[in-house]
Structures are given as C-alpha cells and as structure tokens.
C-alpha cells in the first residue's frame, strides 16, 4: 500500500497503490488529509491505476475526502479505475459526489 502525492498548479494528485481496506485506509487518509489541509487545493485527484483490491472502506475513503474538500469549496476527481474495482464504484453511486474520469496520465502530473 502506498500514496504518492503530486502538487501542481494548486491541484493535488494522490497516486494510490496496493490494496485499500479498513486497515490500509487509515494511513492513506492521514497522508492525503495532511497535505490537503495545508494546501487547500481546488482539485484533489485520486488516481486508482495501481490499486489491486478495494472494498467499501475505499468508498468511505472517497466520501470522506469529498467532505473535507467541501470545507474550502474544492472538488474531488477519481481517475483510472481498474476494471476490477469499477463494479464496487458503480454500485456505490459515488459518481454523484465527485467526477470519475479515465485516462489521466501519471506523467502528465509528474512533468
């Protein structure tokens, strides 16, 4: 499990990797919230391309970040969902709370 943070032009991207469950969600949450609360970005992108497993704890994680970003009027975007976790994401209806996008290139944020 890992989180790599990229800050670029007032936008924060968290590239997540490994498995998201109740156990791993805590560290992911703390890492993201730490940075987001300092920077108060207008957009937080959660990049799921390297996620191998996710249960409803991951949905809770996304919902919680949406709530946090609302405090300063920012938005959350979830990107690069692997087919494996598309099922749980669509069941959750989380797309009502944030935008879901495909094909945000990791190196685009890296440049």
């Amino acid at each position: 499990m890992g989180v790599r943070l990229i800050l670029k032009e007032g936008e924060l991207t968290a590239v997540l990797s490994g498995e998201i469950d109740h156990h791993s969600a805590r560290e992911i949450r703390e890492t993201i919230d730490d940075a987001a609360s300092k920077v108060k970005p207008k957009l937080l992108t959660l990049d799921f391309s390297d996620i191998q497993f996710m249960d409803s704890s991951g949905i809770g994680l996304i919902m919680g970040r949406c709530k946090l970003m609302q405090v300063w009027g920012g938005a959350v975007r979830i990107a690069n969902l692997p087919p494996k976790i598309e099922k749980i994401v669509s069941l959750s209806g989380i797309n009502q709370l944030c935008t879901v996008v495909k094909g945000v290139k990791k190196d685009e944020a890296d440049e």
Binding site: A25, R29, D55, S56, S57, I59, G60, L61, M63, G64, I88, L91, S92
Partner: peptide
C-alpha cells in the same frame, strides 16, 4: 469514514 455499503456489496 464508513459508507454503509458492506451488506449491499
């Protein structure tokens, strides 16, 4: 931090 979706899943 909980979605309330465990049983639904």
């Amino acid at each position: 931090e909980r979605a309330g979706l465990g049983f639904a899943v």
